[in-house]
Design a protein around this nucleic acid. Structure first.
Lengths: 143, 143
DNA sequence: GTACAAGTTGAAGTCAACTTCAAGTCAAGG
DNA sequence: CCTTGACTTGAAGTTGACTTCAACTTGTAC
């Protein structure tokens, strides 16, 4: 596949694909003349990358989870701990969603007077103190 | 409360508090001499801000949901649609978490050969096509 | 064989969200 | 009174993830 084909299939712009290649997240399988040729497996790699991004991973973190061939590495405890992070995030997000829906529906003139909104805020505050939930246990894998 | 006190209570650095004030996300209630004084309510505002960030909102988006006094605005359908976005993200994240846990546990030598991992990838890819899930319905509120 | 759309490069630009810096102000303690 | 340390400012710097640009090359259709 050439770069345009990959872009079309994945929605990832060609410029981004070149950028990813430079960063070492994907690899072309050679050139035809000067043009990159990609193996179809790159589509899976890109899916994995977008998945990682949705989960809040940086590109460097994502690369550290990929083997050179693009297959997920077997650093099992890293994977598991990342899954834990995501679960924690999911919990907070669901609280947020509930909170938003409540705010959208609550007839109270001021949310400051609403106990359930207060509870949401308190929960959010406690969560916020754990500074950035990213960049914690992955530090070791950074150069 | 002075800026250091707010920083200590919330974990948000003073530089960030000044930045947020410039951006219009929080407001001081005056000065003592040259120094900012904050009302205790700013703690709730900051909680709300961090909550919004965790949900993937930009600072501009968050500001658009706050009234000048820091209370959530009553644009109910905006709130509700954001909640929908968050629920969708939660769905993808839970898939991601399941996928990671599977990858961590799966004994297959290559995940390329594992059907459930394949399914995860396919789901991720389809989700990825909806380019940036942010900046969609909130565009109208941007200047 | 030539025109041209689509590819290539490295370098520079952009954007959000901060952080850092230099230079200055001020309140309080010794 | 004077030093010290926490605050102030605007401007510039940083980081990550891209995008855009200018200048160039090439595969493909006619």
């Amino acid at each position: 596949m050439d770069i345009a084909e990959v872009a079309k299939h994945t929605g990832v712009p060609a410029s981004t694909l070149r950028y990813y290649e430079k960063k070492g997240l994907i690899a072309s399988v050679g050139r035809q003349g000067i043009r990159r040729k990609f193996a179809p497996g790159v589509l899976d790699q890109l899916a994995l990358i977008s998945l990682g991004q949705a989960a809040g991973l940086s590109l460097d973190e994502i690369r550290s989870m990929l083997l050179p061939n693009g297959q997920p590495s077997i650093d099992r405890q890293l994977l598991a701990s990342k899954a834990d992070d995501i679960d924690a995030l999911v919990k907070r997000l669901r609280a947020m969603s509930r909170g938003l829906r409540h705010a959208a529906a609550c007839p109270a003139p001021s949310h400051a007077e609403c106990p359930s909104f207060q509870k949401l805020l308190k929960a959010a505050a406690s969560g916020a103190i754990e500074k950035r939930w990213r960049n914690t246990e992955l530090k070791l894998s950074r150069k």
